[in-house]
Amino acid sequence: MPDITVASYNIHKGIGIDRRRDLTRIAHVIEELQADVVALQEADARFGDRRGLLDLDRLATMGLKRVEVRGLRERSHGWHGNVMLVRRDTEVEGVERLALPGLEPRGAIVADLVVHGVPVRVIGTHLALLGQSRIKQVAMVLDQLAALSDRPTVLMGDTNEWRRGEATLKGFLPHFPQSARAPSFPAPFPILPLDRVMLSHGRIEDFTVHVSALSRRASDHLPVRARLVLPD
């Protein structure tokens, strides 16, 4: 069975626990992940022109390209701060953006990719702080998936859910029976499993919270990484 490596990382607008914005440091952490697909959250400024905060040229030298999303603001890198990076040889077959319901502006990117010759759908998202909003957001993502063709699907991002039993994420479980979690926040002493990887078909293996000297300082979240074994 083929496998791909994915990662999710809330970069906190490039601001580390030392309160310095250091995008080179963020790029180095992304390079440490050695992933085929990376879902980033908080990759744009929150206010004003919501300019993108990534060092795209530096990422390109690492062999990563940004998945293009139509309809973004002129200077934004992502959709409500969500950015998806893939290896240069990854084929992008289609991309949609979802505006998720709730009091805060939140969104998701849905991308149909071919990674190492394997078709896979990847959803990168950042769910709401409020539980009732998360429940509505889960329902909207599932409604969107129901309208699409069947395809192995991985959902990853900052879910803002830390409680046992999945709580507000329960709606995902029938569609994503494979779900991995481990403490990823706050970065210096992680106790809350906010950052998740979920899979519809196949197996999640080697799920880890990526801890390094840089990742402990670069953002308030640690990145998570997983190897996915997908059906042929």
Rank of each mutant, 00 (worst) to 15 (best):
K65C: 03
D158I: 04
V115F: 13
V229A: 10
V118R: 15
G14Y: 06
V37E: 06
R87G: 15
L64V: 02
E74F: 10
L192Y: 10
F176N: 08
R164F: 07
R66H: 08
L33H: 02
E96C: 01
P177T: 08
V211W: 00
P231L: 06
T90Y: 10
H12P: 03
L56S: 04
R196G: 01
T5R: 15
H28L: 00
P101R: 12
L169N: 08
A99T: 14
T90P: 07
R87Y: 09
V114C: 12
Q144A: 13
L23W: 02
I4R: 10
R50Q: 15
E31Y: 00
I11H: 00
P174K: 11
T90E: 11
N160V: 00
G81Y: 06
P188W: 12
G14M: 05
A108H: 08
G48S: 12
A108Q: 10
I30A: 00
P174R: 11
R66C: 03
H28R: 14
D49C: 00
I4Q: 10
N160G: 00
V110S: 12
R203M: 04
E74L: 09
L173I: 13
A111P: 13
D143E: 15
F189R: 14
W162M: 04
H126Y: 14
D150L: 00
V67R: 12
E205H: 12
S76L: 01
V118Y: 10
L192D: 04
F47V: 06
A187L: 08
E166G: 01
R121I: 08
F185M: 04
V120K: 13
V197S: 11
A27C: 15
H175S: 06
L103D: 08
V141R: 07
V67C: 12
R227D: 04
A167M: 04
V118M: 14
W162T: 06
G48P: 11
A213S: 13
P188K: 08
L194I: 02
G171I: 03
G52R: 02
L199N: 08
S133H: 15
S76P: 07
R46M: 07
D112A: 11
F207P: 07
P101D: 10
A39D: 04
A128T: 00
V37C: 05
